[in-house]
Amino acid sequence: MYSAFNGLIVGIFYALMALGLSLILGLNGVINFAHGTFMALGGYLAFTIEPYVGFWGSLILAPFGAVVLGLLVERILIRPLYGRDPLFSLLLTFGLAMIMEDLIRTIWGSVGQPFALPNYLNTPLSASLFFLTGYRLVLIAITILVTGALFAVLRYTRIGIRIRAGNADLETISAMGVNIFFLRAANFGIGIFLAGLAGILAAGQLGLSPSIGSSLIMPSFVAIIVGGVGSLIGSVLGGLIIGIASGITAAFFPVAQEVVIYVIMAVVLVLRPRGLLGQEGLFE
């Protein structure tokens, strides 16, 4: 129970990351290897501004900081590669990830930084619920809220409807008068927002290190594959499943806690190559 819960918390980070990666893969057609470093950036920005704006202030502001940088990257580096072989953007974001990680090392140092949480969030709720801190509740609540808001936007707003339509047929929405340059930028921004948010939430739980992003990105890709490429709900589900599985494994057989993620992926791919919710149509 306790280890499953630990796993759930990590699974939340995977889920938020996988959600953003999925969005960006769907509409922008980019496998964003730099997603993890945007996540780390969110955490470090929060770390830097927390002394001035407090924990809650940093939680709200830092993701937008990551978004600003994300939008610049999209506009300057990624946009020229749209419509080309996906290999180009993959290589670009791969290189970008290394550069950004080194920049983070240069700016904030290569040793980890503790991310100070308000005391009232950091104490366990009770002795029997020793693993349940206020922070973990906040983390779960924020994730539910943000994910719910994202799905509502995709379902009910014009921009969300266009993102869904564009996922299916980008060319046709542009011929219908939709500015796909703007739409792709907005979608990229939403994905980076989720990464930045995951970074701050993870910083409070796991602490900060320059490689926090690169250690979380591979499991997040696995989450997409397990959940089914093209399904956002699948990405969330995949993230939670591999998080919980690796949490439980960590308690009983610690050396296998990372391997288990890939074992799950292999099993899913053999039994159900399209992933758990793949092909069921987007967002259903």
Binding site: R158, I161, R162, R164, T172
Partner: peptide, 20 residues
């Protein structure tokens, strides 16, 4: 367009919300 290019996974009403 040729072949209509309807967004098949979206409702009629949603299809009509795509163009500005």
């Amino acid at each position: 367009p040729e072949g209509r290019k309807i967004f098949g996974h979206m409702s009629v009403h949603e299809n009509l919300q795509v163009p500005p």
